[in-house]
Amino acid sequence: MRLTAALSLLIALTTSPSLAERVVTAEEFAEMVTGRTLHFDRFGRPFGSEQYFDDKRVIWAFEGGTCQRGIWFENTEGQICFVYDDDPSPQCWDFLQTDDGAFHARLDGEDPESDLVTRDVGTDALDCPLPDLGV
């Protein structure tokens, strides 16, 4: 009985006070984002937005920046990866849902402090002119 109490205390002391988080599967991710635009904060400030289409195409725009078109896919490790027209190197992320309902994106190998945190989810289209229109 004492061992159980000591083990419980050890777990409580070593457990981070942060919220519990769960990695979202690719199927859950698709259901959550398809047809929507997610607006992200980083370090408590607006960072960028991404619009998700039915066929896994995306448009990303840094806050106040230009638009980048790309696609997303699931890699063999279950991460959500993005490839954009201007950079063929995949950027892979874990998308996490916390127990308070927040939605985080963590770049592979980055610390939680660098997470992108969803500020807003809507159906608004990003203001991105099509390429070669001269607009």
Rank of each mutant, 00 (worst) to 15 (best):
M1A: 15
A5L: 15
A6N: 14
S8G: 06
L9Y: 08
I11K: 09
A12V: 07
L13R: 11
L13G: 10
T14M: 13
T14N: 12
T14L: 15
T15M: 02
S18Q: 14
E21S: 12
V23C: 02
V24Q: 03
V24K: 00
A26I: 13
E28P: 01
E28G: 06
A30Y: 07
E31T: 15
M32V: 08
M32W: 09
T34M: 04
T34D: 03
R36Q: 11
R36G: 04
T37M: 03
L38N: 05
D41N: 15
D41R: 02
D41G: 05
D41P: 00
D41Q: 03
F43R: 15
P46G: 01
G48T: 08
G48H: 06
S49C: 01
Q51Y: 05
D54M: 12
R57Q: 11
V58M: 06
I59V: 14
F62T: 10
F62L: 11
F62G: 10
G65T: 07
T66R: 12
C67G: 08
Q68F: 05
Q68T: 02
G70Y: 12
W72Q: 04
W72N: 01
F73D: 10
T76G: 01
G78Q: 02
Q79L: 15
I80L: 15
C81Y: 03
V83R: 10
P88T: 02
S89H: 06
C92K: 03
F95D: 08
Q97E: 13
D99F: 01
D100M: 00
G101E: 05
A102P: 03
H104V: 08
A105V: 11
A105M: 11
L107H: 09
D108Q: 13
G109Q: 11
G109V: 09
G109H: 12
D111C: 04
P112S: 04
P112H: 04
E113L: 13
V117Y: 03
T118I: 02
V121L: 05
G122V: 01
G122N: 03
G122T: 08
G122P: 00
D124C: 06
A125W: 07
P129V: 05
P129W: 09
V135Q: 13
V135G: 07
V135H: 04
